[in-house]
Design a protein around this nucleic acid. Structure first.
Length: 337
DNA sequence: AAAACGGGGAT
DNA sequence: ATCCCAGTTTT
């Protein structure tokens, strides 16, 4: 990893926030892009929200980006841009939880705090043969205490990286390489034949379906866009005029015209396209969507309050994957604008 | 304590 | 189709 051996707390913080619930392979290029554009916390702090969100676009969990900016600005404004070096102060930062605080404290300052991430849960659960659920409150306390107990306190930084590397490359979730594992003689789960059943998780997630119908209203060469500000997925990202329904709607030209007239009072409009169904799988929901392009001849009053952007400006805004995927296809086919 | 929050890669 | 990822915040 590019940040191995890194001692700059800003870079460590940035990389760890990017890697929260995110695979190294996925976050790698984002980290490089951020460091290239914002080599120091001061440069990140003074960047406009829109620009930073655009750089985060596609990475998911967008509150991380919001908190990243908030924290950068806070440190610059209140601490002269100097990153805190005490665990409690680091933990108090927005977007920094127990894992990230321990990572920064140990990597940057070699302080004796144990990281407890997915890798550590798995390695400890197997090595000590512990069947306590890792996603229960009790389990989290148990494994955190155990991690602190077995931590190599004098070399916490390198130890923390080692146990996570070990979990990522040897003691993997699927098909761990036990036969060549140096810890195999001491591994309780291997001895008991429970390696592939540990760690235990008790919560099962269920996915709900949502139907998103996006109306791309264009008027005089500009497109209506809206920022998602409600507490929901994709908060702070941009989108088009959204109609969300509980059930699937089968749109055709006639029903679109009918809906425009009845629901938003638009009588004069040309329907340029009704896209094929687009799907976006998220962890807790499956979103199916369709994009309906509508050229307006007159501008209804209630649409005046929205943002109207030129295609060029559109490229500066961060959109969810569902939308960027559609836009890329449209640009590719040169049938948008 | 439980739910919400993205997107992608591996099995 | 399911799991899980160098987790945190809100309810």
């Amino acid at each position: 990893m590019p940040w191995k051996g890194e001692k700059d707390p800003y870079k460590i913080w940035l990389s760890e926030v990017i890697l929260q619930q995110t695979r190294v392979a996925q976050g790698w290029q984002y980290y490089n892009n951020f460091i290239t554009k914002y080599p120091t916390i001061r440069q990140l702090a003074k960047a406009p929200d829109q620009e930073v969100f655009k750089l985060w676009e596609g990475l998911g969990y967008y509150n991380r980006c919001k908190n990243l900016l908030f924290t950068a600005r806070q440190i610059v404004a209140e601490q002269k841009g100097v990153f805190p070096d005490q665990y409690e102060d680091i933990l108090a930062l927005k977007g920094v939880g127990p894992y990230t605080a321990a990572a920064i404290a140990s990597f940057a300052y070699n302080q004796p705090y144990a990281v407890v991430d997915g890798n550590v849960f798995r390695v400890l659960s197997r090595f000590f043969g512990i069947a306590e659920a890792i996603d229960s409150a009790k389990g989290k306390i148990l494994f955190t205490q155990l991690a602190e107990k077995v931590l190599a306190r004098k070399e916490a930084g390198i130890y923390n990286q080692a146990i996570m590397d070990f979990g990522a490359t040897v003691c993997k979730p699927f098909a761990p390489t036990c036969t060549s594992c140096p810890l195999q003689p001491y591994c309780k789960a291997y001895e008991q034949g429970t390696v592939n059943r540990l760690p235990i998780k008790e919560k099962t997630l269920q996915r709900k379906n949502r139907w998103f119908y996006y109306f791309l209203f264009s008027y005089k060469g500009k497109l209506l866009v809206n920022q998602r500000l409600n507490p929901d997925i994709w908060q702070n990202l941009f989108e088009f005029y959204l109609l969300e329904t509980e059930e699937q709607v089968k749109w055709d030209e006639k029903s679109v015209h009918q809906w425009l007239k009845d629901q938003i009072g638009i009588r004069k409009a040309e329907i340029k396209q009704i896209s094929p169904l687009q799907k976006q799988e998220l962890t807790h929901q499956q979103i199916k969507g369709q994009f309906i392009r509508v050229e307006l001849e007159t501008l209804p009053h209630f649409l005046e309050n929205y943002r109207w952007e030129t295609p060029k400006n559109l490229q500066k805004l961060a959109f969810p994957k569902l939308i960027t995927g559609y836009l890329e296809k449209s640009f590719l086919q040169k049938d948008l604008f």
